[in-house]
Nucleic acid binder design. Structure first.
Lengths: 343, 343
DNA sequence: GTTAGCACTCAACTAAGAGGAGTGCTAATA
DNA sequence: TATTAGCACTCCTCTTAGTTGAGTGCTAAC
């Protein structure tokens, strides 16, 4: 168990290092407000904190730097919720000023403002389309052998995909089929469509339409690799600001990671509410060993979730980011439930 | 007018510098194949070429480096079309191997392969949706006051937008309206839709439907800021490989530029066929003063164009990129006219 | 338990010197 | 007259050595 003085020193070191990015020395600490003891005492305490694994030195005679364990402790025990500036709040509010209807637009704007306010990189996941329900299904033929399948969801999202028609299909067949599909699919969530198609619809269709097998197969593959949640980025190059990323290779690895959808998806904790912090090597990706990721979720209507992630150096301003994400999550949730609460 | 020997020396210098990124000295040149004269002679010629503005020195006693004017001359007069490797051709062909229908998928793959083959950054503009023609128009109501307007084009592209319904609209109104719109809009190109709406459709609609004005207005604004051509990137971080971009700030400026749609659009020369090369400050963007951009266009069907850009350092391998773009443009054009030539 | 004092460490900066690739000019050569 | 060998000179790059300063750990005094 740490003594009060140790806690105080650890806090000062982390806070100071977060601002300055420079190793913190005992003399520097002794000058801080609230510190009543001498540099020598502080050096003793720091030696202890280092033995306990909370601090590190960059070389034998340098000041101390928080270790990952130090950050973790700081985040878990020393992080007091902090209010945010009224100017910041104002800027966040500006997202909702211009009476937008489009969810996408709001999220895009949020991504930009978050990266501006934090000076880190923000990633926002849009609504999880998989949970939308089918509102209408239709097929528009384009030529003798191609057509577009369109699904409109209850939230106004439109999914569409071109496909090749089996050779001997008539317009009448198509119409019949669309009717049957509409009867069966309306209200089904996108993620359940293929199950539904293969289980119930196939049997019905076989009785009424030629090439039903082919058809269903085409539709299943078309709806299978459904679009995942859209991803919005803000401040992709903000990392260049951070002194720890003056190394081209690190920046490159992270930028490359952000181009890979699957990697980005795995930054998030789906279905867990609250704010999550992953520090350095707590991240699954090797490329992120010098980064921390703070994530949270927001609601869109009653049944859907979006997610927010802020990526910065491990020396991230946790206090501020957590406070901002808290506000952001509430505001987004509020904005989206107000507008969309009607089916 | 340059002598043959000067041409030969300029060519060698540019070729060598493109490969090595190191200033080229007279001794080095004298060892090249085809060079029969001594370093001293070469030095004299180089001094002349420098006076003429084709070469530069990085410092008083360094070798020579091509100036922008030098590159321009090289590109205009010394660039012999060069065949490309069979392995490269094979890789390009692989884009079309898996019998894809979706234009988007092919373009995305092309962007990646181009950036791989060149080790520069590639940007591909998808088909210009504005020239598609309306195949079907429909409105799907979501709630009492919101609905989605959907336009399917002759090429299978689907445009959709949510909008708020005027308060006193009935389902019958909607249906009537969709019918009228379909009658009038089918075959109209997306870029002409607002004109058509305001000119012809409004009058007809006013006779049959309540709140026609409101409606048309909503639709016009919804279709106004129509999606521009989609942009696909390949090898965004490839610039990190180039020694001239070991400077964080330069890379950052270029990456930021690539996030700005309007800036990216302005890299292209719309409606000009052939291959275009912009070197260094010939680019409009200040950020691109150390870059060259090579662009070309490809056709999608008879009436649409896509575009390709390769962005690299001014010390770009022009020969290779031009050759690759030539192949690429033809292959894409061919692939897209084959599949889409039926209406 | 706390603190002043002191020897010690090490990164960061500066200065000086060596090496090497390259140039321009001059004078000799074909 | 055009070309080339020779040579002094330039300037980047790399290495080495020395200096400074912030910081530490330890010991002894308070």
């Amino acid at each position: 168990m740490l003594t009060n003085r140790q806690l105080q020193i650890l806090q000062v070191i982390v806070d100071d290092f977060i601002m300055s990015a420079q190793p913190v020395g005992s003399r520097q600490i002794s000058k801080k407000q609230g510190i009543t003891f001498s540099p020598a005492t502080i050096r003793n305490e720091m030696a202890d904190l280092e033995e306990l694994g909370f601090l590190e030195k960059t070389h034998t005679s340098s000041g101390r730097v928080p270790s990952e364990k130090g950050y973790r402790f700081y985040v878990d025990h020393l992080l007091r919720p902090q209010g945010i500036n009224s100017r910041d709040i104002q800027q966040i509010q500006s997202i909702f000023n211009d009476r937008l209807v489009e969810v996408e637009h709001i999220i895009r704007k949020s991504a930009n403002i978050l990266s501006e306010l934090t000076s880190y990189t923000s990633i926002l996941l849009g609504p999880d389309v998989q949970r939308h329900r089918v509102k209408r299904f239709s097929i528009v033929p384009l030529s003798s052998d191609t057509a577009v399948a369109i699904i409109v969801t209850n939230r106004g999202h439109v999914e569409n995909r071109m496909f090749t028609l089996p050779p001997d299909v008539t317009a009448a067949d198509l119409e019949k089929m669309v009717n049957i599909l509409n009867e069966r699919l309306i209200g089904v969530s996108l993620e359940d469509i293929h199950k539904m198609l293969e289980a119930e619809v196939l049997a019905v269709l076989q009785q009424h339409v030629r090439s039903a097998d082919d058809f269903i197969h085409t539709l299943v593959t078309a709806t299978m690799h459904n679009s995942e949640s859209k991803i919005f980025y803000g401040g992709k190059t903000n990392m260049f600001n951070q002194p720890e990323f003056h190394d081209l290779n690190k920046v490159r690895m992270i930028l490359d990671l952000m181009e890979t959808t699957s990697q980005v998806q795995s930054l998030f904790h789906p279905n867990e509410s609250g704010i999550h912090i992953r520090i350095g090597s707590e991240n699954k990706q090797l490329e992120m060993e010098n980064c921390s990721v703070i994530t949270t979720t927001y609601s869109i209507g009653d049944d859907q979730q979006g997610a927010i992630a802020i990526i910065g150096p491990t020396r991230m301003d946790y206090k501020r980011v957590v406070a901002l994400l808290d506000v952001m999550r509430l505001d987004l949730t509020q904005a989206f439930t107000k507008n969309l609460n009607e089916e």
